[in-house]
């Protein structure tokens, strides 16, 4: 029994090697695209003067949630600047944004597919379970072999790791739409596409936004781990702090991740439940539009 061993690890390694050799062109293309995107976004953010960018973040907070979030954002981002963590924080933010956008672009259509097709749902569900339960660091290894050290393995691992909640929440949201409302769409002659766009997606939006919030948070946690794969940013700072046992640097890098996490969480969760934040700029604008008298009322009033 001692000698009994099935070399699953080796087999998978062989398969991955084969993939690497035969699909090198694709990996190169994907790698170049990702690093261009992330580096471009980082450069763009860094090009903006710090106070101006902080003001923009604060306004985003007020736009979707409240003036309190705006103030909190301004103070905490100033702290990041003061700790000398501004550049790594923006590098991490770029990685998270690019990874989250790609993840959402994949996850939402997959979720829609699973909501409409029982077979697809049955096949994809165990795959998603697998992706979510595998320890996150494990994704880094094949990603590094495919894309070599740098930001790209980090973003790829982040996408794989944060995909499942995006898919699941989308499927859940669409399946949870009141069937009578979907029937109403059919009963008035809507096409499946019109029902998806006009009924299912809008009604599932709060749930889907919940999934997007999860995606962003997972992406952030993975982006820190991506530091081990050589991605620039807060993660790399943490890795460096660990290897030199530099407590001060580690705490500062860690705090800047916390600041990012709180900001991203508050913004994305507010997007999912716009009705809950009555003092947000968006809510105020919406109320103003709703209170504008309708055309009919205007004409009757004019006649009186």
């Amino acid at each position: 029994m001692e000698d009994f061993r099935i070399p699953i690890g080796e087999w998978i390694e062989t398969v991955l090697d084969w993939i690497k050799i035969n699909f090198a062109v694709i990996f190169d293309g994907v790698g170049t695209a990702f690093s261009a995107l992330i580096e471009g976004l980082t450069d763009a953010l860094l090009a903006v003067p710090e106070p101006a960018l902080i003001l923009v973040f604060a306004l985003i907070g007020w736009l979707v949630r409240s003036w309190q979030l705006a103030i909190g954002t301004a103070v905490s981002f100033l702290l990041v600047v003061a700790m000398g963590q501004w550049t790594p924080a923006l590098q991490t933010l770029s990685l998270v944004l690019v990874a989250a956008i790609v993840t959402i672009a994949v996850a939402v259509p997959l979720g829609i597919l699973m909501a409409r097709n029982a077979t697809a749902s049955a096949i994809l569900r165990p795959v998603l379970d697998f992706m979510q339960t595998m320890p996150a660091l494990v994704y880094l290894i094949p990603a590094i072999t495919f894309f070599s050290i740098g930001v790209v393995p980090g973003v790829v691992a982040t996408i794989i790791f944060s995909l499942p909640p995006g898919v699941r929440f989308t499927e859940l949201g669409i399946r949870g739409v009141d069937p009578e409302r979907v029937e109403a769409g059919h009963a008035f002659g809507a096409t499946p596409g019109q029902i998806l766009r006009g009924i299912q997606l809008p009604l599932a939006a709060p749930t889907i936004m919940g999934g997007i919030n999860q995606v962003v948070m997972l992406a952030l946690s993975m982006a820190v781990i991506a530091g081990f794969g050589g991605a620039d940013g807060a993660g790399k700072e943490v890795v460096a702090a660990i290897s030199t046992l530099n407590v001060a640097r580690g705490v500062e890098a860690g705090l800047s991740v916390v600041v990012l996490a709180i900001f991203l969480d508050r913004v994305t969760s507010a997007l999912g439940a716009p009705g809950d934040y009555r003092s947000s700029i968006l809510a105020i604008l919406r109320r103003r539009r709703a209170n504008r008298p309708s055309g009919a009322e205007v004409t009757t009033r004019a006649r009186v």
Partner: peptide
């Protein structure tokens, strides 16, 4: 779909209105 939009429409037990549309847009849906 053509038969439904031209010949036969429906009223539902729990109304099945679209909550994100105004009354006007709900009525104009068909």
């Amino acid at each position: 779909r053509q038969v439904r939009s031209e010949k036969i429409s429906m009223v539902f037990q729990h109304f099945a209105l679209l909550p994100h549309r105004t009354v006007l847009d709900n009525v104009a849906y068909g």
